[in-house]
Amino acid sequence: MMQFIIDTAPTLGALNINALAAADEVIITVNPQLLAMMGLQDFLKTVKKIRARVNDRFSVAGILLTMCDARTNLCKVITEQVRDTFEGQIRIFESRIPNTVKVGESVYYSEPLIEYAPESNATKAYKNLAKELINYEG
């Protein structure tokens, strides 16, 4: 079986709906900001609709917290809220992608993060996520 990762823009336009309909699983990224939980709840409704109407194999592989600044209280509160709300229902990845300018710079310079900043905390976090996914997939 071949596996692909499709990374789309955060809006729910036709491209995203089609990508979700074609997928077997989705990793939901959550930026621990004030409106994150509302957006997450809305996205989960979309997942249910796609499963019911288009693709009954479609499921949520897990929730990944991104752009995290563990020093802020808001990040801690939202992380805890995600865990309290979804633990036992949806996998919450242990990996947390930190908020760092290196990610934005690598996009600006059109270089993969692993080449642009191989020792950055974000690169290390993405490597940890890859290990987590490999263990998850078996």
Score class of each variant (00 low, 15 high):
residue 3 Q to I: 02
residue 3 Q to A: 00
residue 6 I to N: 14
residue 6 I to P: 06
residue 10 P to Q: 03
residue 10 P to D: 02
residue 10 P to T: 04
residue 11 T to F: 07
residue 13 G to F: 06
residue 14 A to Y: 06
residue 14 A to M: 08
residue 15 L to N: 09
residue 15 L to A: 10
residue 16 N to F: 04
residue 16 N to C: 10
residue 18 N to F: 06
residue 18 N to C: 11
residue 20 L to S: 03
residue 22 A to Q: 11
residue 30 V to F: 03
residue 32 P to M: 00
residue 32 P to I: 01
residue 34 L to S: 12
residue 34 L to A: 09
residue 34 L to C: 10
residue 34 L to Y: 15
residue 37 M to N: 03
residue 37 M to G: 03
residue 39 G to D: 07
residue 41 Q to F: 08
residue 41 Q to E: 13
residue 42 D to Q: 13
residue 45 K to W: 13
residue 52 A to S: 15
residue 53 R to F: 12
residue 58 F to P: 01
residue 59 S to K: 09
residue 62 G to M: 04
residue 62 G to K: 03
residue 64 L to R: 02
residue 65 L to I: 10
residue 68 C to G: 04
residue 69 D to C: 08
residue 71 R to Y: 01
residue 72 T to H: 11
residue 78 I to M: 05
residue 79 T to D: 07
residue 84 D to S: 13
residue 85 T to P: 04
residue 87 E to A: 14
residue 87 E to P: 00
residue 90 I to Y: 14
residue 90 I to W: 05
residue 95 S to M: 03
residue 98 P to L: 06
residue 101 V to I: 15
residue 104 G to C: 04
residue 111 E to H: 13
residue 115 E to M: 15
residue 116 Y to N: 08
residue 117 A to H: 12
residue 120 S to N: 15
residue 122 A to P: 03
residue 123 T to N: 02
residue 123 T to L: 09
residue 125 A to T: 03
residue 125 A to S: 13
residue 128 N to V: 07
residue 130 A to I: 11
residue 132 E to K: 05
residue 132 E to V: 05
residue 133 L to E: 02
residue 135 N to E: 15
residue 135 N to Q: 08
residue 137 E to V: 02
